[in-house]
């Protein structure tokens, strides 16, 4: 009698966080909210992304990006943060690496800052509250 292993798994799918070469996309999360950082991290790791670092303000995020360069494929960047806000950090990272892929995380009502970020070079944005489908869709649009 044939058993389970003898049949191909037709439902098998590659995790979204995997590159065509089989390695994982590497993400740096910059957000001052422990809750949002955890939320994004859980969504991404469940799809096979590697979270290579978390920073709680723009300055720390910029420094981490430089330290880890070129081993970061995507940055999620909160807009409102203490010490250095997300738009300034975006500007500094783009100045350092014009090909950096950065996606802004925004509360509702920050349209002006989102527009400014897109003009500076952010690839996309996500408005909170975050849900899994929205986060993955925007991140995949930016990364692939």
């Amino acid at each position: 009698m044939k058993n389970k292993q003898d049949f191909p798994n037709i439902n098998e799918r590659k995790p979204e966080g995997q590159k065509p070469d089989g390695s994982n996309y590497r993400v740096l999360i910059v957000d001052d909210s422990m809750f949002v950082t955890k939320q994004i991290s859980q969504i991404l790791t469940s799809e096979g992304f590697d979270v290579v670092g978390t920073a709680s303000d723009g300055q720390e995020g910029y420094e981490m990006y430089k330290e880890q360069y070129p081993n970061v494929d995507l940055v999620t960047m909160d807009i409102t943060m203490p010490r250095m806000d997300g738009v300034t950090a975006l500007e500094k990272i783009i100045e350092f690496d014009k090909d950096a892929k950065i996606i802004m995380i925004s509360a509702l009502g920050k349209q002006d800052l989102v527009k400014k970020s897109l003009l500076i070079g952010a690839k996309n944005y996500i408005v909170k509250p975050l849900d899994r489908a929205k986060v993955l869709e925007r991140i995949l649009m930016s990364i692939k």
């Binding site: 909210s33 509360a107 509702l108 009502g109 909170k128 509250p129």
Partner: peptide, 13 residues
Amino acid sequence: ATITELANMITAQ
């Protein structure tokens, strides 16, 4: 942080 974020989202909207 979670309750802060909840207040943030409600206020922003």
